[in-house]
């Protein structure tokens, strides 16, 4: 039973801020972010790593928070959707999602945005097929993906300093 197992210390940087807490080993990163840190932009859509709604970036790489033990992120830098905007305002991806109509119910949006951010950090000039492939670990039931793909393409252009075509 859980009583026999000791909590362990977890230190990480979440959206730029240092965080230090004690967690049970079986707590997932999803649970710690949502329940301990109140970062409820991290969504649980399936709990088995299929839907992608809980995606966060851990040291710059996309991970399913529901399939990541919190302790695995010890010493890491974690970015959630709440950390995308800064004092200057929304990120380019967030702005592009709004303008292209890429947001409907909004439940998949945090994961989609982080996957998009992740893609554009690695590939400033993705073509449509590359965008679709990169987003294909994320399920959206509302949009049919067309406007999300358009938004990512527009965001890529804007990040390169070009006008979206």
């Amino acid at each position: 039973m859980s009583l026999a197992i000791k909590s362990q210390g977890l230190r990480m940087t979440v959206n730029g801020e240092p965080v230090e807490l004690l967690v049970q080993p079986h707590e997932t990163l999803l649970q710690v972010l949502r329940e301990r840190l109140d970062l409820t932009g991290v969504k649980e859509g399936c709990g088995e790593g299929a839907c992608g709604a809980c995606t966060v970036l851990v040291d710059g790489l996309a991970r399913r928070a529901c399939l990541t033990l919190a302790l695995e992120a010890d010493g890491c830098s974690v970015l959630t959707v709440e950390g995308l905007a800064d004092d200057q305002g929304l990120s380019i991806e967030q702005q592009a999602f709004i303008e292209a109509g890429a947001v409907q119910c909004g439940f998949c949006t945090p994961g989609m945005l982080l996957a998009s951010h992740h893609l554009l950090e690695q590939n400033p000039r993705p073509d449509e097929a590359e965008i679709r492939r990169h987003l294909s670990g994320h399920i959206c039931r509302c949009t049919g993906y067309a406007k999300i793909v358009e938004a990512v393409s527009n965001a890529a252009a804007r990040k390169r300093g070009e006008e979206p075509s």
Binding site: M1, I5, Q8, P25, T28, E44, G47, L69, L71, D74
Partner: peptide
Amino acid sequence: MQLPPMDYLAP
């Protein structure tokens, strides 16, 4: 979905 209690080592 919950994980069952477990111990954790990171050698």
